[in-house]
């Protein structure tokens, strides 16, 4: 089968495709938002897609031998190889099409990686993939921990969070002292050839992720989407609140939602003014149970700095004078 794919914007939830390409057969946790990212990106991209998954919870929990949930072709790749897997797959397809060895058509190459694979170990390969002119989409599904190895802190874990590597102790209350990396902004700022970069949350605003995936695929060339995925196991909350926490991340402004299309930045969601206090987002998660008033205040102050002192929240600081 060959077909021209049209990546139309989906207007209204009833118009979303009904077909599932990430189906039964996985064993992700109840309330897993990363699984929702898998479901939504494949729904948006459709059957002419090759999915590449780096090592992480969306590898181990999804693809136990003989019970794959993937309706589209899927292949495992190494933790730091999301970018290179996408490059190699896309280059292989293009070479074979140019030489007439396979039919010429648009095949979506989508690599997904968790926060270790997308923001820490795999960053170099993703940077390289975004420099080249191959048609590919890389999705960083960020659940803010190494969720497959029993919740360890990564470069993406929210400041102050308890993880198995950053417990709270009698002497040190805060072990996660790093501020979350701004991966989408960093990649956008340093890769002039990238066609489309966005941040997204699976649950909020509705259809946003589906349409951002479609925009990326329609753009062609190297593209990147960073999703923030609430994780009941790692963030310690009841699974029924996953969608709500996603919404609070956007409404509190701790995770700005934007897209950058050919270098033009657009905020795709503006939090209400005044923003929802970040405490409302943090206090619903057990990983911040040790927070005192000063800790909530510190995170709030950092979020405020991001919105008040940056030209574009989390991308270009006003202090840089870049836009003056």
């Amino acid at each position: 089968m060959t077909s021209e794919i049209t990546f139309e914007k989906i207007k209204g939830i009833h118009n979303a495709p009904r077909e599932e390409f990430y189906s039964s057969g996985h064993r992700t946790c109840e309330g897993c938002e990363s699984a929702m990212v898998m479901r939504m990106f494949s729904k948006a991209s459709g059957p002419r897609t090759i999915a590449l998954g780096t090592t992480g919870c969306m590898y181990v929990a999804n693809t136990a031998y003989m019970t794959t949930p993937w309706v589209v072709p899927w292949m495992h790749t190494q933790l730091g190889a999301g970018g290179s897997a996408a490059l190699g797959t896309s280059a292989g397809l293009r070479a074979l099409m140019k030489k007439g060895k396979i039919a010429k058509e648009k095949i979506n190459t989508i690599a997904f990686c968790g926060d270790l694979g997308g923001a820490d170990m795999g960053l170099s390969a993703i940077s390289s993939a975004l420099q080249m002119d191959y048609d590919l989409l890389i999705i960083l599904y960020d659940n803010e921990s190494a969720a497959n190895t029993d919740i360890q802190a990564t470069g993406m874990t929210t400041w102050g969070a308890q993880t198995t590597f950053t417990p709270t102790g009698t002497v040190k209350k805060i072990m996660q002292t790093r501020w979350k990396k701004n991966v989408a902004g960093m990649l956008a700022a340093g890769h002039p050839n990238v066609k489309y970069i966005a941040t997204a949350i699976a649950s909020f605003p509705p259809l946003d992720l589906l349409n951002k995936v479609r925009k990326a695929l329609a753009a062609g060339g190297p593209t990147f989407i960073h999703t923030l995925d609430p994780c009941p196991k790692g963030w310690d909350y009841h699974p029924r609140y996953s969608d709500k926490l996603g919404e609070l991340a956007a409404r509190s402004g701790i995770f700005p939602l934007y897209e950058i299309e050919n270098g033009v930045v657009k905020m795709t969601y503006r939090p209400p003014q005044p923003k929802v206090p970040v405490k409302e987002y943090l206090e619903k998660q057990g990983r911040f149970a040790h927070f005192g008033a000063e800790d909530f205040a510190y995170v709030q102050s950092q979020v405020d700095v991001m919105w008040n002192e940056w030209e574009i929240p989390g991308i270009i600081p006003m202090k840089s004078g870049a836009l003056r």
Partner: peptide, 8 residues
């Protein structure tokens, strides 16, 4: 549409 190299 095959799945390659799952967790075994």
């Amino acid at each position: 549409p095959i799945s390659i190299a799952p967790q075994v």
